[in-house]
Simulated assay, not measured.
Amino acid sequence: MSINWNAHELDVFLALAETLSFRRTAEQVHLSQPAVSGLISRLEESLGVRLFDRTTRSVQLTGPGQVFVEQARLLRQQSDEAVRAVRNVAELQVGQVVLAALPSLAATVVPAAFARFALQFPAVRLQVVDTLSGPAFDLVRAGQVEFALTAANPAYADLDYTPLASDGFVLLIPVSHPLASGSKPLRWVEVATLTHISMPLPSSVRQYADAALLEHRVRFSPRYEVEHLATINAMVAAGLGVAALPELAAAVAPQAGLVQRRLVDPDIPRPIGLVTRRGRSLSPASAAMVEFLRQEVQRLVPHRNTVPATRPNARKSPPSRVNPRQP
Rank of each mutant, 00 (worst) to 15 (best):
P202F: 04
A157F: 06
V170K: 03
D210L: 05
W188M: 06
I197G: 00
A209D: 05
M199G: 01
T193L: 14
P202R: 04
A180V: 05
P222E: 03
H216P: 08
H216Y: 12
P222Y: 04
L213E: 09
L201H: 10
V175P: 08
L172M: 15
D210P: 04
R217W: 10
L229H: 00
Y208C: 12
L229F: 00
V191S: 12
A192L: 10
A212Q: 03
L171D: 02
A237F: 02
A165I: 06
H216N: 13
G168P: 07
P200V: 01
A234P: 02
E227V: 13
V205P: 01
L229P: 01
P222Q: 06
S203R: 10
N233G: 14
V175Y: 11
D158R: 07
W188H: 04
L186P: 00
A180G: 10
L201R: 13
R223I: 01
V226C: 03
L214W: 08
S221H: 13
R187Y: 00
T162M: 04
L172F: 08
F169L: 14
P178F: 09
N233R: 12
Q207K: 03
V189E: 14
V189P: 02
L172D: 08
R217N: 15
A180W: 09
D160K: 02
R187S: 08
S166I: 08
S183V: 12
R217M: 11
D210G: 01
H177G: 06
V218K: 02
P202K: 06
F220S: 06
A165H: 15
Y161A: 05
R217P: 05
A192D: 09
A212D: 01
H196D: 07
E227L: 14
